[in-house]
Design a binder for these strands. Structure first.
Lengths: 150, 150
DNA sequence: CGACTGTTGCGACTGATTCGCAATTAGGGG
DNA sequence: CCCCTAATTGCGAATCAGTCGCAACAGTCG
């Protein structure tokens, strides 16, 4: 079950020691349906392996971030100061957080890739991590609001 | 001295009650030469008015954020989990944080404004706040690194 | 199957931010 | 100009995410 996890194989390929805890955490992150924060990641991972400690979660997150395999998000702090994590994908995408309903929209566009290029070239800056987040009102909530004003 | 502060006049115009503490905090933010976190803001503001409490700093930051006059930054958490603040400007700009030297580069480009437009239109999303931050290696540090490898 | 080294659990700790409540104060109406 | 009231503040305790030191444990390589 953990064996066919792409992220796991990638970590292995980098010569990182694979412990039971790391396997469970990586599988959990990879199969997550939503953006997980450290606490939810711990909770979910414990369903696979109850012997996981909070400190290990933070240490593993740190490891995966350093390996460039995990991205950290704030999601505009809609729910407090914690961070959320997601597996890094081929193409960077951005996150839109709705202040009204709390929903998160993901969006990718070539314009973002081009902007990245421009940033890197014009500032002679080697980008390792990039994060674009916006907060505002999604279309459904905007309609809702308008309706209530009538 | 506080009177000629543009931000202060703006806040006043919105019908917000102006206390001595808020005047001092707003003046401090406006005249800051670097990105301030809550603790440094408190420290600096106390030079103007020693009767300022930590809680008031956080409450004022919250207020100014809600008024859309202050933007919150992470600066890639180069120095821990705290947040940094800056007065919102006409044109949005992005922040590049160098993991090697800790330097921050600010950069604005029409491409960013256009990307914002595209995001808003394609997702039918009303953007209220937007934040683009990148982490990596600045040109000076890249040169330094290369030199040391030779 | 050891040994060596990296990893983990634990529990205490830190540092940023928030909260409840009583005391204070800005600023409009008289 | 003063008073009143609602908004704001100070205080100190509480919360909450994340970190640390250290002893016990466990992959991996030979």
């Amino acid at each position: 079950m953990f064996q066919r996890c792409a992220l796991l194989r990638e970590v292995e390929a980098k010569g990182v020691r694979l412990t039971a805890q790391r396997r469970a955490l990586i599988a959990t992150i990879q199969e997550a349906k939503t953006h997980l924060d450290a606490a939810s990641l711990l909770e979910l991972a414990r369903e696979r392996d109850p012997n996981i400690n909070r400190a290990t979660v933070y240490r593993t997150i740190e490891l995966l971030k350093k390996l460039g395999m995990l991205d950290e998000l704030d999601l505009m702090h809609l729910n407090g100061e914690k961070h959320y994590y997601e597996v890094r994908t081929q193409q960077d995408h951005l996150h839109l957080a709705c202040f009204a309903c709390g929903g998160i929209i993901e969006f990718a566009t070539p314009a973002f890739e081009m902007l990245k290029q421009e940033i890197a070239v014009k500032n002679d800056f080697e980008i390792q991590v990039i994060r674009l987040e916006a907060g505002g009102i999604c279309s459904a909530c905007a309609r809702e609001k308008k309706k209530n004003l009538q």
